[in-house]
Amino acid sequence: MNIQTSKESSAMVVKVTGRLDAVTAPEYEQQFTALITGGETRFVVDFEKLDYISSAGLRVLLAMAKQIKAKSGQIHLANIGGAVREVFDISGFGSIFPMHESVISALNATAG
C-alpha cells in the first residue's frame, strides 16, 4: 500500500485514504518514517478520503509529529471531517495539531 504523496514548494503533501486503524497503522508508520528519514521536514496530511480512524491511527500521527519536532519541522492536518473529526475531538487531538480547512491553506501555513 502506498500513500499518495506530492511534493509541493513548501511541504510534502501526504494523502491518507480509507481506514487508519490497528491493521493499517503499521504500514503508514513505516512510510512516514521513510519520508522523514528521507529528509522531509514539512508535512501536510490530507484527510479528505479517510473514512475511519482509531487510537492506533492517532498514535501513528503522534509518533510522526514527535519525529518531525525533533527535526524542527512542521506538520499540518487538512480536510478533517465527519467521524474522523469526532474522534479527534473526543480524544483531544484537535488541540495538538494545527488543522486546516483545505490543503492550500495548510500549505500557506507551512510556507509562512
Binding site: A22, Y52, S54, S55, V87
Partner: peptide, 16 residues
C-alpha cells in the same frame, strides 16, 4: 451509519 461506525470503533478499541 453513525451508530455502526461508533460500534466498530468501540469494538476495535476494546480488542486493542
Amino acid at each position: 451509519m453513525k451508530t455502526r461506525q461508533n460500534l466498530l470503533l468501540i469494538v476495535e478499541e476494546m480488542l486493542q
